[in-house]
Design a protein around this nucleic acid. Structure first.
Lengths: 225, 225
DNA sequence: CTTGATGGTAGACACTCGTATACATCGCTG
DNA sequence: CAGCGATGTATACGAGTGTCTACCATCAAG
């Protein structure tokens, strides 16, 4: 095994590998024009400055490349996001800060988010599934943070996890609006934060059995006999 | 003007127009395989049982067809949804019933939803925009219903409208999960309803200034000077 | 009956595309 | 040095595509 140079995640120095060139070319093309699976092998080679056939030295398929790209994007996204949130010490203003961090991160890596959201509902089931899993992991991190930092005290773990999932997806989507409408960014941020707060407060209220809650959520709690 | 037969929205009798054949063929193809904008003109003609060139008798472009399709889908979706919700008289169990209705409707028109969600984040800005507008209209209807039926008393109109938007989008997305995982349908329904209720309750609680609310949403209410 | 427009068809041209085969480097390993 | 695997390139072929031009059918208006 490993006769040759350790082709890992790029040691250092030396320009990008052909494989890497192809990956970033794919990201670039997918972000500006179309769906990942509809990029042409030749188009890709052209963008990467490589021969069309070089593609086949690294990937068997465009779905193959897509999966590799999702893997990479997942790491590029999850790890920094964990680090970012770890920088928030105060329990106060948690939602705003977190969303701001995500949006800032999106501003620095727009293509990742554009393609990510696109493919989340794209044509390839495998890619969809991979993306969903990545978001699920981020949601897991978020749920863990919520538990540790006591953001939603009294909420059972399962519900918390579900809320985290919704929040993660919603924030992920909002990222696109944020990127697409630079003039409405503060408004978008406000809306997302409002959404998150309402969701958390409501879930806690319902679980605590507050009277106000029953006004709206009277499903199968008591039938009007 | 109007020298010939009134080519409107199909009077009655007589098989589908060529234009209609093309539209439904496009819907079918887009639902099962790829993005709308990546369907080939020839492929389309083949599916519709028409000559490739017939396409150009009705549309200039694939974007053109896409817009026409979105228009049609918008009407196919909004009007029946309005009617459906008007059939809910009781204020109780409102969320469950509404979401159930939407999901049932989705079960009968899966392609509409599959393509709708896909294109909502698709490559064509024009199509995206059109779809967003359609969803916005549905959200408007929902907000109006919420106001009339006193679902969220005490909530100001702007916030209600924003909540309706989020609910509409979220429900729209969930439709895909619902279609894709028939074995988890009741679970998905439960999650969406839980989400909606939590959101509404939370928004009302925050607006009412409930003490519990401030535990979570302390953003810029008081700065720790 | 003629006219002209609308919807549909047929054939052709110039592309692009995916991919197969064969060849060229380069660097490691023996 | 010889060999070999990994990477990149050149060429070529067949299939599919968008679209142009030209031709046919139908039907209402004059």
């Amino acid at each position: 095994m490993s006769k040759h140079k350790d082709i890992g995640p790029q040691d250092e120095a030396a320009g990008p590998t052909g494989r890497e060139k192809l990956l970033s070319a794919a990201l670039k093309l997918a972000a500006k024009s179309r769906n990942l699976s509809t990029i042409g092998v030749r188009e890709l080679g052209r963008e990467a400055g490589l021969n069309p056939n070089t593609f086949y030295r690294h990937f068997t398929d465009l779905d193959d490349l897509s999966m590799a790209l999702i893997d990479q994007l997942g790491k590029e996204l999850r790890v920094p996001l964990q680090a970012l949130r770890r920088s928030i010490v105060s329990r106060e203003e948690n939602a705003v800060r977190t969303v701001e961090l995500v949006f800032d991160f999106a501003k620095d890596h727009p293509d990742v988010f554009i393609v990510g959201v696109r493919e989340l509902y794209g044509a390839s089931p495998r890619v969809r599934e991979a993306l969903r899993r990545t978001i699920g992991e981020v949601a897991g991190d978020l749920a863990e943070d919520m538990r540790v930092m006591q953001i939603t005290p009294g909420l059972d773990d399962k519900t918390a996890r579900e809320l985290a999932e919704v929040v993660a997806v919603q924030t992920f989507h909002s990222t696109l609006d944020y990127l697409e409408h630079p003039d409405q960014r503060s408004e978008i941020l406000r809306r997302v934060v409002q959404f998150i707060n309402a969701l958390f407060v409501g879930a806690m209220a319902i679980q605590a059995g507050l009277p106000l809650a029953t006004m709206v959520s009277t499903q199968k709690l008591k039938k009007p006999d």
